[in-house]
Design a protein around this nucleic acid. Sequence first.
DNA 1: ATAATACTTAAAGCTAACTTTAAGGCAAGA
DNA 2: TCTTGCCTTAAAGTTAGCTTTAAGTATTAT
Lengths: 134, 134
Amino acid sequence: MNIKEASQITDVPASTIRYYEKENIIPAVDRNESGVRDFDDHAIRRISFAKKMRDAGMEISTLKQYINLFDNVEDSEDEQLALLVEQKRLMEEKRDKMQEAIDHLAHKIENFDTHMLRIEDELRSMKANKKERL
Amino acid sequence: MNIKEASQITDVPASTIRYYEKENIIPAVDRNESGVRDFDDHAIRRISFAKKMRDAGMEISTLKQYINLFDNVEDSEDEQLALLVEQKRLMEEKRDKMQEAIDHLAHKIENFDTHMLRIEDELRSMKANKKERL
DNA sequence: ATAATACTTAAAGCTAACTTTAAGGCAAGA
DNA sequence: TCTTGCCTTAAAGTTAGCTTTAAGTATTAT
C-alpha cells in the first residue's frame, strides 16, 4: 500500500506520515526497489495509534519516549509500565478539565435568557451613566 | 490588586495576562494614576474563564469570537447561543476522543505482561532471522 | 510517446500561543 | 540617595507540529 492509501485509511496527511517516520514516531516503513514506501498492517496500526494519542493531546515528545522505550526491549519493564500509567493519569486529568469547561458552557446555555437580561441591564446602566456624565 | 497577585490567584503568568488584554480576550483592565493595572473581581473572573476554556482546548480565536459577540450586545442572541452550543459540542467530541485514548492505555496496562511477552517473542524471532541471514 | 499523477528528499515556511528582552518609570526601605 | 523590586511597553524570539516548496524520479493512462 502506498502513502496515499495509508493516508486515506488512517486519516493522517501523507506529509505528516513522512514527518512521523523521520521523527521515529512510527518505525521505518518498508520500501520497494525504487525507494517508494510500502505500508503493511503493522505500519498502519502504528500510525493510527499515533493519531489516537495525538488527538488525545499527547505530545510528540512523549509519544517518542514511549515508543523508544518499547523499541529498546532491554529497558526496564517497570519504566514502561510507569510511563503508561503516568500518561493515563495525565489524560484523565485533562479529560476532567474538559468536563468542567463543558459544564460551565452547559450552565451558560441553560441560563441563557437570564444571562442575556443581565447583560442588557448592564448595557442600559452604562448608557445611563454616559448621559449623566455629559 | 496588581498583576502579580492577579497572576498568583488565577495561575496565569503575568505576561500571558498582558497578552490576553492586548488580544481582547479579557477587557481592558483599570489603571491607577501612574498607569499600573489594578485588577478587580470582574477582571479576575474573566481571566479564570479564559484559563478554563484554554485548558479545555478552546482556541484563542474562538475565545475572542465568543467574547466579541457578548461585548456587542446588539448581535443576535441566536448567534451567541449557537456559539455556546457549538463549542460545547466540540468539547464533548474532544473529551470522547480522550476517553478512547485512556481506554486504549488502560487496556495496554491491563495486558502488560502478555504484551511484554509478545514483544520479547518478536525480538527473539528478529534475532534468529538475523543469524540465518549471516 | 507524452502527459498526468504519483512518489522521493531536504529545507524553508507557517501558525498559534505565548515568552523574553530591552529600556525605562515609580515607590518603599536602608 | 541608592538599591530593590515592582510595574510599563513594543518588539523580537521561541516552541510545537506540522505544511509547503523545489527539484527530481517513477508509474500509469491515453
